[in-house]
Computed example of a mutant assay.
Amino acid sequence: MAPTRIPNATELVASGFVARRKLLSRVMSVLLFLCAALSVFVTTAIVVILVSESWEFFAQVSIIDFLTGTMWTPVFANPQFGVLPLLLATLQTAALAMMIAVPMGLLMSIYLSEYANPKVREIMKPALELLEAVPTVVYGYFALLVMTPFLQKFIPGLAGINLLVPGIILGIMILPYVVSVSEDAMRAVPNGLREGAYALGMSKWQVALRVVVPGAFSGITAAFILGMSRAVGETMVLAIAAGQNPNLTFDPREGAATITAYIVQVSLGDLPHGSLAYSTIFSTGLVLFIMTLGFNLAGFYLRKRFREAY
């Protein structure tokens, strides 16, 4: 019988290291799975709550009247549940925000990616991202107390509570999202494409517009969709500076309530829990959720359709 071999100290240490590494790998795998499962669970729970609570609302209110009605007076003696005033105000402010964020964000991204030297980029990008740290309440009162009186000197008929100024402020708020994601996408474009364009005699501006931007189109689109979703879901700026009157208007100089501002108004506790007026929180929240989901699906399609593989 061959004698039993006793492992030496080095082999014991190595085997113990391998065992600890396998254990750590299993623990991390479980933790990562739980984190992913938690996000899926939270999203599913939100959808279930919105759908279940909205189901009770739509059992009493026609979905056709809800989507096509032009009056939103759920707490009046003769309640009307047409969501169009809230929906139109929400889309108007988001569109105004994108009119500010898209051109400014694209130009700033091109500058940071193609023109700025590394030291300037290291200063400007974190400074721009500091805008995300400003509380939205501060933005709201800045829009109401500073920007609105200032713009009233130049824009005739601009009301003290309006959609125009909150839309502009929203555009400034989402700039960090648009610039950061767009600039990262542009910097991911291989330098070989830039060098080939320079070899063909293109200028720096032509390279940026004809090579870099098309090459990073999927990432730029993702940045714009992310900014749009952020603008649609913003609450405090619109609740403070846009007003809480469900006014069906196409004039951004007037005030109107958005979906998020209405949800804040109803959530203050003035309405009894379980009433039909209170359940409008979930029906309007479901509309907002579907809008955001639609933007995300559109962004996913555009990224998949125009994504470049290098």
Rank of each mutant, 00 (worst) to 15 (best):
I290D: 13
T284N: 05
L34Q: 15
Q265R: 05
I174D: 05
L209I: 14
M28H: 13
G167V: 05
I259K: 00
M147C: 15
I46C: 10
P135D: 09
M124V: 15
S203F: 09
R26C: 04
G294A: 14
I172D: 06
W72V: 02
E56S: 13
A185Y: 01
I123Q: 15
E129D: 14
Q80K: 09
E11D: 14
V138W: 04
L175A: 11
A59R: 14
R187V: 13
L145W: 12
F41L: 07
G219E: 06
F154I: 08
L193Q: 02
L286N: 03
R230A: 03
T221M: 07
A257W: 03
S275W: 08
L288R: 04
A239K: 02
M147T: 12
A216I: 02
V83D: 00
S267T: 09
S180C: 08
I220M: 06
A208M: 06
D251Q: 11
T93Q: 00
I161G: 01
P246Y: 02
R194C: 13
F289M: 11
G140Y: 04
I168S: 02
L297N: 13
V47H: 03
A45G: 06
P156W: 03
F224T: 01
G215S: 15
P79M: 06
F58N: 04
M99A: 05
A277T: 03
S203H: 10
S182F: 02
R194Q: 11
L302W: 10
N78E: 09
S29L: 12
P156K: 04
L31A: 15
G192M: 09
I6K: 01
T93E: 01
S15A: 15
L268G: 09
K119P: 08
I100V: 15
V179H: 03
V83T: 05
G171H: 02
T258K: 08
A95P: 04
M71D: 04
E308R: 14
E114K: 12
G82Q: 04
P126M: 10
L96I: 09
M28I: 15
F33Q: 15
I63E: 10
V47R: 05
L96V: 01
P166H: 07
A188G: 11
